[in-house]
Design a protein around this nucleic acid. Sequence first.
DNA 1: TTATTACTTTATAATCTTTATAAACAGTGT
DNA 2: ACACTGTTTATAAAGATTATAAAGTAATAA
Lengths: 152, 152
Amino acid sequence: MSHTHVHESQDQLKAALDTLKQTGVRITPQRHAILEFLVESMTHPTADDIYKALEGKFPNMSVATVYNNLRVFREVGLVKELTYGDTSSRFDFVTTEHYHVICEECGKIVDFHYPGLDEVEQLAAHVTGFKISHHRMEVYGTCAECSQKDLH
Amino acid sequence: MSHTHVHESQDQLKAALDTLKQTGVRITPQRHAILEFLVESMTHPTADDIYKALEGKFPNMSVATVYNNLRVFREVGLVKELTYGDTSSRFDFVTTEHYHVICEECGKIVDFHYPGLDEVEQLAAHVTGFKISHHRMEVYGTCAECSQKDLH
DNA sequence: TTATTACTTTATAATCTTTATAAACAGTGT
DNA sequence: ACACTGTTTATAAAGATTATAAAGTAATAA
């Protein structure tokens, strides 16, 4: 992990904590830890992933606390909830807009930047009469590692 | 409902039954009814919607049967499973490629045709090294009816 | 036809994720 | 110290989906 990356994480965490302060949400040790984990984990964890990752630091923390706080974070716009085909939601710390590419074999999720598809939203609005607020897109396929494995 | 529409539904159902024959999947009364419902319903029903809709015709049908057969249909490519934020999956009979526009207030789902976003898939493949198979996109907003209601 | 086999449905239980509830706890201000 | 509000914990409940075993049904072969 590069130095700039570490600094970015710290800055993002600090900015997130500021957001909480400004919106009047208390910064508890659990909330701090959940946010920290979300910012630093390059994965897109489930609520249970987070719960397990923090049970060392907070042996008494309840699963409900994880869910409660993920909801709070979502409400103030700090995290996005991703609902894919698999059973449980995944949570993504919001930085810049991006899409996801998902490996259908191993489940890996890779961030993927692409200019916003404004044109699609406009056409949708025109055709359906909806007021459009946003969209989501995921691209599915097989990652390089799994493609390699499949050869053998 | 126009005459052509009825014919389309019948043709689609017949084609679906053919697919089942060709793939060696038995056509049971329950499967026939579930397929028929999926083809004719303009909605995007949940497993429970289907279960409830058919309990008149099949008072003894089990929920498991609905789930089992939706999985079978999905495996042979006749239906797509849509997983949105809400609790349960929705099932969409596969006709032509299309996207969905979803009302965030009432949950209505409207089909929306747009040329395939091949370019996005190509860029994703190039940037991530994935072999891309497909993508999904949903557009979210407020439908005309709910927009009207919001004014009052 | 009969026996055998594989597939399907039913009924039910189990699992898993998420939410609800109530009691205990912690921080803030009076 | 006291009251007030928000938070966490522990636990139960809800809801969706899957697993299991028994019974039923269709297809096949002897």
